[in-house]
Nucleic acid binder design. Structure first.
Length: 152
DNA sequence: GCCAACGTTGGC
DNA sequence: GCCAACGTTGGC
């Protein structure tokens, strides 16, 4: 990893796992990521304590609904070894895991979510990864300046 | 290693 | 439900 982004954004479909679920659980293993770029961010980039924007996708009002943080180092995603899991990967072995994850901890819920619509309107954010055309990455980095703009 | 086919994501 | 974008797979 060339640069060292320290701010992140993770996407989740709220019907599968929402910011309210994270609030209830306090923390959760960010399991099931099966994209190499997203994996590399978690495995090689994320450090304990890094702030994470929690984004709700595929829902009536997509946007950032809360703040979380990285609370563990990267470790092998156990679901890749579980043949009964939909995330099972027969090519992975315990000696040579393919997929990694970190634990994500709850920080706060944003009472007025920062909607995708609002993000698109802010000229300062047009370059952020989330808004780049066709970006479907479920874990991505966020510039410090972008994070501060969104928190204000 | 190329590239067409296929699958998934996610906004609308 | 549609469709554009794009990552992954697999035949050659």
């Amino acid at each position: 990893m060339k640069s060292e982004p320290r701010y992140w954004l993770v996407k989740s479909e709220p019907s599968a796992y929402s910011i309210d679920d994270l609030k209830k659980d306090k923390k959760t293993p960010w399991t099931g990521i099966r994209n190499y770029t997203a994996r590399n961010f978690m495995r090689d980039g994320m450090q304990i304590g890094d702030p994470v924007l929690f984004y709700h996708s595929s829902c009536p009002v997509p946007g950032v609904y809360g703040i979380a943080k990285v609370v563990s180092k990267a470790y092998a995603d156990p679901t890749q070894f579980d043949s009964s899991s939909s995330y099972y990967d027969p090519k992975a072995t315990k000696g040579k895991p393919i997929w990694y994850l970190v634990d994500i901890g709850f920080v706060e819920k944003i009472h007025e979510p920062i909607t995708l619509e609002a993000l698109k309107k802010d000229k300062r954010l047009t370059k952020m990864a989330l808004l780049q055309r066709g970006n479907r990455l479920s874990v991505m980095s966020v510039e410090e300046s972008e994070f501060k703009i969104m928190c204000s």
